Amino acid sequence: MTQRLQHSFFEQIVSTIQNKNLSQIPRLQKIVINRGIGDGNTQIIDSSLQEFQQITGQKALIRYSKKSIAGFNLQKKTPVGVSVTLRRNFMYDFLDRLINLALPRIRDFKGLPLYSFDGCGNYNLGLDEQLMFPEIHYDQIQQICGMDIAIVTTAKTDYEALTLLKAFGMPFQKFFTKSTTLKK
């Protein structure tokens, strides 16, 4: 079953770009969602795994530390985070719910900042809490935690990625500053 954004991408976005080869058109590759857990508390890790599965519809993975760091009281192979990588239908479904349901529920939301592009056509954003997703209920959470979302595209430049994400309906801020100018 194709998702709504995936269908609109192939029907509207690809058909409007006539001058490029089909393989040169920027696309979404994957969306990576992760959350860092400060301490290795098993309750918080289990609740984060359950929340990510509710939000994304896909099982999340526990990430472990690779080496010991004495300054942080961190031992090797201690759980430090939760991560999930979305591709294909799961990716388009999550992006659709992020754009149309979660982001409008943020208090005093003025749009996503333009300076979060990484220079290679990928966009990163951080959310302060998980309560903006309608699948998460306030009385069922252990702790309010944020998450990082990385939207990876095949675009070569930030301008191409911005154009692609705007075509999907991503709400970006309306104003430009000197630090947010994007190169074509």
Rank of each mutant, 00 (worst) to 15 (best):
Q58H: 00
K59T: 06
K59Q: 09
A60S: 01
A60H: 04
A60W: 00
A60Y: 04
L61W: 08
L61Q: 15
I62M: 06
I62L: 05
I62N: 04
R63D: 10
R63H: 09
Y64D: 11
Y64K: 15
S65V: 07
S65H: 04
S65D: 04
K66D: 13
K66G: 12
K66E: 13
K66C: 11
K67E: 11
K67Q: 12
S68P: 13
S68F: 06
I69L: 14
I69A: 10
I69P: 13
I69Y: 13
I69M: 10
F72C: 02
F72M: 05
N73K: 15
N73H: 14
N73Y: 00
L74M: 13
L74A: 09
L74G: 12
L74D: 08
Q75D: 11
Q75Y: 09
K76Y: 09
K76W: 04
K76F: 08
K77R: 13
K77C: 12
K77D: 14
K77E: 13
T78Y: 05
T78G: 08
T78L: 08
T78D: 08
P79G: 07
G81H: 02
G81E: 01
G81D: 00
V82S: 03
V82P: 08
V82N: 07
V82T: 06
S83I: 10
S83G: 13
V84C: 03
V84T: 00
V84G: 01
T85Q: 01
L86Q: 05
L86Y: 01
L86G: 02
R87C: 02
R87W: 00
R87S: 02
R88K: 14
N89R: 13
N89M: 10
F90Y: 12
M91E: 10
M91C: 05
M91P: 05
M91V: 01
Y92A: 12
Y92K: 08
Y92T: 13
Y92H: 14
F94T: 02
F94K: 02
